[in-house]
Amino acid sequence: MWILNFIKENVLSGTAIFLLIISFCLTAKSFEKGSYLPSLGINLVGRVIAPAEKGRHELFQSIAAAWNRYVNLWDIEKSRNLLFTENKALEDKIASLIEVEYENQRLRKLLNFGQSYPYKLIGATVIGRNSSNWVRSLTINRGKQDGMKVGSPVVDGKAVVGQIIAVSKKTSTVLLLTDNISGIDALIQSSRTPGIIKGTGTAMLEMNYVLKGSGVVVGDKVISSGLDGIYPKGKLIGTVTKAEDTVGLVKKIEVKPSMDLFKLEEVLVLVSE
């Protein structure tokens, strides 16, 4: 009888302890490699939220387009001339780059190199951003039906953005390079010094395991090395903004990512063929 009274008086505390134990177990399960919980999340909640996010995105795009079309008319003539000149210069550049491409293919054949870019490029639109301040992620409007796969690298045309971590039928979640658990094998473009780029949970990145005396200076470009087997070689990651010696053997290097997180609207997903 006293047991029943005890349980009756402590139902709230007992239930709270039980729920905390479940939460801890779920957290531990999430951090396991290959855990199904992230995919479960995007399939349960993402399917409901994604249509609303798409609708919100399209509405904002329409409003922005209307604003640009009717309010900025006085700038159109100036922009048109500028774009015309730029277009001519780009056409010339494309022509010379095509030549370089052909030469590259001929030389590769000669040296018997394998195909260096076995990816299919799929464009996607960003329809949502991280719902929490402590998880840096994006939602894109491509899912399983478009060929998205967990682990596929994502770029914004010129720079690395991140990696797909969860896929539902119509949407996917991209973990940004700036998240705490993101990492990428990298090189300093000029000196070819290797290191590991790690997300810090803020807008900046840090490059670890770079030895003192490596000659890394502020302004150096950082690119992906391709050695991690995830990101292709040579993709721009960011620019070194701080390079200081520490008391140990390594340098403390801060890198500003080239992708502008807050202006990301379209991305490219590299899906392996």
Binding site: L12, A16, L19, L20, I22, S23, F24, C25, L26, T27, A28, K29, S30, F31, L37, P38, L40, G41, I42, L44, V45, G46, I49, N130, S131, S132, V135, S137, I165, A166, T173, L175, D179, I181
Partner: peptide, 22 residues
């Protein structure tokens, strides 16, 4: 639900919601 929406870690928001209730 908020944990599932964040996609990455499932559990921390649920635990903090329980403690916040108390």
């Amino acid at each position: 639900i908020f944990d599932f929406a964040s996609v990455l870690y499932v559990g921390p928001n649920a635990a903090s919601a329980v403690i916040s209730f108390l």
